[in-house]
């Protein structure tokens, strides 16, 4: 069992921590160096947490649990107009990012209105590539309920909806969870009360994702996503030169690789694991709807019969 954690500390000697986590069999998912500070997102074996905590203390850094680590979340706004951007959508996206998720912002082309709102097939497929979608809606109860009846058509991933009124999740059709006290906010969310609302959203999303993890654990993926990431980094040299943020983005049962599909899919399909299997035996390598990236979905144990 791996524990998702975030480390914030000085650059000096932080490689000691990196090496420790790797030696313990954990994974470094992301490393951001900002001048003299470094932020690490890691997966650490839960039994070895005390050792890592001791090391973090020694380096005078801070270690916190980041439950959203290793997930890719879509924050969806009905459109890309002043009504939603920049404040609320960016605040939500940035806040979830701080909790370890990789967030992508999606603006729908025709998502406006309660009667006239639509979602296109492309948008639906793009959103379905994520682990979870956060729909950021507006101020009025009636509009949120009416809109929810039709807007999420065909979306198969869990849907978290935000809005101003305090509604029960059961009242919002098709939603997995609902978080109130948001609404259409045209200023940066920085007051204590607003930050608490964002915290609440992170907790709710954490819970929804935990449920998904439980579901996944019943039929686990044949290969763990961090393992996919590690093997690609070691066997596909070009990924090092990729300038995209997070060239390999982890998802709960796969990964998004930011390399052109046409050129690299065969190379990735033929990646060899030390256990003697290749990538195409344990995962599906698919073209992603996002640019021409590659989407890897691990096959469940029930299909392959083994877990590596």
């Amino acid at each position: 069992m791996l524990e998702p954690v975030k480390y914030v500390g000085g650059v000096y000697k932080h490689n000691h921590l990196l090496e420790l986590v790797e030696d313990l069999g954990g994974y470094i998912l992301q490393k951001n160096v900002m001048q003299t500070e470094v932020v690490l997102l890691m997966l650490v074996p839960i039994n070895d947490m005390p050792i890592v905590e001791a090391k973090a203390r020694e380096l005078l850094g801070k270690l916190t649990r980041a439950p959203l680590t290793g997930t890719e979340i879509a924050t969806v706004a009905p459109t890309l107009a002043y009504h939603h951007l920049p404040h609320l959508d960016c605040d939500v996206a940035e806040f979830l990012r701080q909790h370890g998720a990789k967030t992508n912002m999606v603006g729908l082309a025709r998502g406006v209105g309660k009667r006239i709102c639509q979602i296109t097939a492309f948008e639906r497929d793009l959103i379905n590539e994520h682990d979870l979608a956060v729909f950021i809606l507006g101020n009025y109860e009636h509009c949120i309920i009416e809109k929810s009846k039709r807007l999420y058509e065909g979306i198969e991933i869990p849907i978290v909806v935000t809005g101003a009124p305090e509604l029960k999740t059961e009242d919002v059709p098709n939603a997995t969870a609902y978080v109130g006290s948001f609404g259409r906010i045209l200023h940066q969310m920085r007051h204590a009360e607003e930050l608490r609302t964002l915290d609440k959203l992170a907790v709710v999303i954490g819970k929804v994702l935990d449920d998904v993890r439980k579901e996944l654990a019943k039929d686990p993926p044949s290969v763990a996503p961090p393992r996919i990431k590690k093997e690609i980094e070691e066997q596909v040299q070009e990924i090092i030169d990729s300038l995209h943020p997070l060239p390999i983005t982890l998802q709960m049962n796969g990964a998004r690789v930011k390399l052109p599909y046409e050129e690299y899919h065969e190379q990735i399909e033929n990646i060899k694991f030390v256990e003697g299997v290749t990538m195409k035996e344990v995962a599906r390598v698919l073209p992603s709807k996002m640019r021409n990236f590659i989407l890897i979905k691990a096959l469940p144990k029930s299909e392959t019969g083994f877990v590596i």
Partner: peptide, 18 residues
């Protein structure tokens, strides 16, 4: 003014901000 009280409150903040 609005039959939706919460909506009216948030709309007021929204107008102030704008």
């Amino acid at each position: 003014e609005s039959p939706d009280i919460v909506g009216a409150k948030t709309t007021k903040v929204l107008i102030q901000d704008t």
